Amino acid sequence: MLSLVPGPIQTYFSSDTLHTDATDAGRIEAEYPTEFLNTLSFNGYPEHQIDLKVFTPIMLLRNLNSAIGLCNGTRLMIVYLGHYVIKGLIMGGTFNGKTVAIPRVQFLVRLCYGMIINKSQGQTLQSVGVYLPKPVFSHGQLYVVVSRVRTAAGLRFLIVNEPNIPSNYTRNIVYHEAFSGLGNTTEVTTSPL
């Protein structure tokens, strides 16, 4: 996707050196070589190497300053890439359209052409495309993703029930224990889309 965006790529690297005052720095470096550490990838942390372009969408991975809208999960459109700062336009939410600067502590961002259901919670979007290679796996997740869009016309699904065969039904995982004591409830196990 990044190669389709015009303009030059700006590459950022994480800090990957040990503090020289560490008493056992030599042992740690021998056990965990820098090349190995740079290949590790964890949820909620940026990659060692991040390639970005102006006009690409990114998502913040940490709360930086909630007063100006820089919170975990905030989506931004990059408008400027500097050595020590990224400027972006906030997309959605209370601060929609506001230009903000992200300082380089370590750029806690990832490219964001799509997002998982949990990260989409709290977002209100014009259009949503949902890719379900298998049914959602937790109570209420289908509701969360469907309720992110303003109108039904802005909602599209790609559901694959059998290998490579799209369908218009998916399982809606509901734990009926959640409804105990509510009186007469109707059991729903599949949702036509």
Rank of each mutant, 00 (worst) to 15 (best):
H176P: 10
T56M: 05
N161L: 05
T94H: 12
T56C: 09
L64E: 12
V144N: 04
N161H: 06
R62C: 01
I9N: 06
R62I: 00
L142P: 02
R110N: 14
L89F: 11
S3C: 11
S120V: 01
N63K: 00
T189V: 07
G114M: 15
V128N: 10
P33L: 06
R62Q: 05
I116P: 13
L89K: 10
N164W: 02
G114Y: 14
H139I: 01
P133D: 09
F42L: 12
I173R: 06
G7K: 02
I9S: 09
G44E: 07
R62V: 00
G140R: 00
L132Y: 04
V188A: 00
F55K: 08
M91D: 09
Q126C: 08
I68Y: 03
V174H: 03
L37S: 09
N118L: 05
V149K: 04
G93D: 05
Y84V: 15
Y12F: 07
R27I: 11
I58E: 03
P57A: 06
T186Y: 11
R104N: 12
I159N: 10
P166I: 01
I50D: 08
P133A: 05
Y175T: 11
G183T: 03
G181N: 08
V145G: 05
T11L: 05
H83Q: 15
L40C: 12
E47N: 14
E31K: 13
S147T: 07
N168Y: 10
S167L: 02
A152V: 12
T20G: 10
M115T: 02
H139V: 00
L81I: 03
L40A: 09
D24S: 05
V145D: 09
V145Y: 06
L193H: 13
S191V: 14
T151C: 08
E31H: 13
P135M: 02
L76Y: 06
F107L: 11
N72W: 00
G181Y: 11
G122A: 04
